[in-house]
Design a protein around this nucleic acid. Structure first.
Lengths: 198, 198
DNA sequence: CATTTAACTGAACAAGTGTTCATTTGAAAA
DNA sequence: TTTTCAAATGAACACTTGTTCAGTTAAATG
């Protein structure tokens, strides 16, 4: 308890998140390999050595960013309990995906672009989480098939196709763009629904 | 003419393409910033300095890879004259996109992932070519609207969505995968067609 | 044969890389 | 006030980076 009071008063619980935020932003902007520890440190207002109070190495910094993004995603999905028939659940999933990803463009960018900069073990961990998310969508597609309201020749391929379509939105969406978010949401739901229904 | 004979006999017209091929493969694998000129040179069987007989600098090497990929794409599209009604042209475009991109996964990877490593001018050039390609699809969607056979609330958004879906295929397709290419082509055409038709 | 010259080497340059660690700092605890 | 210790410094480590260029090599030319 004594040291908790100490820690609250200290400022490492501010610096830690600042390191993560800065790293995320810089990596999204320039790519993992192109960003140096000294650049990150400079933006936070530290010397490079001080970063090693917050991460064991550069690789772990990247992995933590990606893992926490995927964990947030899976947690948020689990918290959104989709119910009703397959069509309703597909609509819920589509809405969830868009609303979760759009305000997190840096995380999406990094999580998709920097997979090849992960060590094999770290890659496997992220890949497993991604697979879990994909499976949630595939379950809905299979349920729709069973209900007879969906007609997809291959649920796995359709899953990959839909996720690519939805995630692509994060790559071009701009908050100050031509269309408001609800409008875009409606357009994407229209495309998704029609593409899988009978 | 005399120096043409000289050049044909020399071996720089073999080394040049080897440099490009090697650079493409390594950059697709590890990312532009993570690949050094010495790595590329070593794989070709040269010293790093010799690369500068084939490119003025590293940035131009990347740009040339992306530009020639986009030029090939636009040339191939122009050579494929899509005719008939909008639905037929959309089917032709879908087929074209898949058949062009699937055998070029390294090019696709590099052209989508390394945009942020281009200098501003080079980025603008590639972006313009990409836009031109997107416009070809949007034209088809607009024609379909006019014909009354397509129902897309926004042709621009639908264009981005469809291209993201189709290009996503290149990211997971494996030649030795579960499904043969014609099967996958049929599945994607099914999704595309249904998503935009009335 | 001698000459020419494209192709390449190998060393050098200045700058930057991730990471470690003895040392300093400054605020909370006693 | 003195003690304590998390947090940060700043220098150092060994190595890599893109790029240049005087010099070497070897094959085509005359």
């Amino acid at each position: 308890m004594a040291d908790m009071a100490r820690k609250q008063g200290s400022h490492s619980d501010i610096t830690g998140p600042r390191v993560q935020d800065t790293a995320l932003r810089l990596i999204a902007q320039h790519g993992f390999a192109a960003v140096s520890m000294r650049q990150i440190a400079a933006e936070v207002g530290l010397q490079a050595g001080a970063l090693y109070n917050y991460t064991p190495d550069k690789q772990s910094l990247l992995f933590d960013l990606m893992r926490s993004h995927m964990a947030d995603l899976l947690d948020a999905l689990a918290a959104t309990d989709l119910q009703g028939d397959a069509l309703a659940r597909l609509e819920g999933f589509t809405q969830f995906h868009i609303r979760f990803h759009l305000p997190r463009s840096d995380q999406v960018f990094v999580s998709y672009m920097e997979l090849r900069n992960l060590s094999p073990e770290n890659f496997a961990a992220i890949e497993a989480m991604r697979r879990q998310y994909e499976d949630a969508l595939e379950d809905i597609l299979r349920a729709g098939e069973a209900e007879g309201v969906f007609a997809v020749p291959d649920t796995r391929v359709a899953t990959m196709a839909l996720i690519a379509m939805l995630t692509g939105l994060s790559h071009w969406y701009r908050e100050d763009g031509r269309l408001a978010m609800p409008t875009i949401e409606a357009i994407y739901w229209d495309l998704v629904r029609k593409s899988v229904t009978t």
